[in-house]
């Protein structure tokens, strides 16, 4: 993991002692920053980096243009699941599968609110295990926008990508004759000029914020690159470098 090899804590304590090699590696964090989490330290890393390097240099290093991502503000989610319905309607998701789901956690001992909802979907990872595992490149990372796409014609149905995905984001779609997954509605919306995903558009509480992480003016950029609220990703240990961020507020 790049962040480990950089010895991040040491670097943060002594930024003036960063060698040229470290400096170059640190810039690369911009490429992989989406996989870094430590209870809000993603924000610290990004902000500290921007103190060291000129404004915007991190953003320039995001590997895709647009670098699509989604920020999920979990505490806003009311569990209405209109996002799931919107996704099903937009992408013809069959009853036996799902592209996005809203998970429910109960904490009976908690003071006040005792239930929490956690929307999940394909994390469009920068280092996607499913893409590495597929023997015939039926699933691939789009070189333009970074979305993990499916080429249905090539899918042999071995389902190794289902086993490889740490986010349970894939299922075999009988009608398509291929594995199906969230593509940020690229096929049904983005490629037709829409600017939002179906789940985002259907959400009444503005939980899901979709946008371009490489655009410093975008909402997602501002939600990720701030110090006030923690931002985290799921399953950071797999080092898949996901592009779905979670925050509150």
């Amino acid at each position: 993991m790049i962040i480990k090899s950089l010895d991040k804590e040491k670097m943060m304590k002594n930024p003036e002692k960063i060698s040229e090699m470290d400096r170059r590696e640190f810039l690369k964090i911009g490429l992989v920053i989406t996989g870094v989490f430590a209870g809000g330290s993603i924000v610290s890393v990004a902000s500290a980096a921007e103190k060291i390097f000129p404004n915007g240099s991190i953003a320039e290093k995001y590997p895709y243009r647009p670098h699509y991502c989604m920020v999920i503000r979990v505490d806003r989610c009311i569990g209405c699941r209109r996002c799931v319905e919107g996704c099903v309607a937009a992408n013809a998701v069959p009853s036996y599968g799902w592209r996005t789901l809203v998970l429910e956690r109960e904490a009976r001992q908690a003071i006040g609110q005792k239930r929490e909802f956690i929307p999940v979907l394909c994390n469009q990872c920068n280092n996607p295990p499913c893409v590495r595992a597929c023997p015939v490149t039926a699933t691939y990372k789009d070189p333009q926008n970074g979305i993990v796409m499916m080429d249905n014609r090539k899918c042999i149905g071995c389902k190794i990508c289902l086993a490889a995905c740490p986010y349970d984001a894939r299922y075999y779609n009988e009608e398509r004759g291929a594995v199906d997954k969230c593509d940020f509605c690229f096929e049904t919306r983005l490629s037709r000029g829409e600017k939002s995903t179906a789940c985002q558009a259907a959400c009444p509480a503005d939980v899901r914020v979709f946008g371009d992480l490489s655009d410093s003016q975008s909402r997602v950029y501002r939600l990720v690159h701030q110090l006030q609220k923690p931002v985290w990703v799921l399953k950071k240990d797999t080092d898949a470098k996901p592009n779905i961020f979670y925050t509150k507020g």
Binding site: A138, C155, I156, C158, K159
Partner: peptide, 10 residues
């Protein structure tokens, strides 16, 4: 496999 013939090609 769901589509073994595709394997032979791809």
């Amino acid at each position: 496999l769901e589509n073994p013939l595709r394997l032979a090609v791809y």
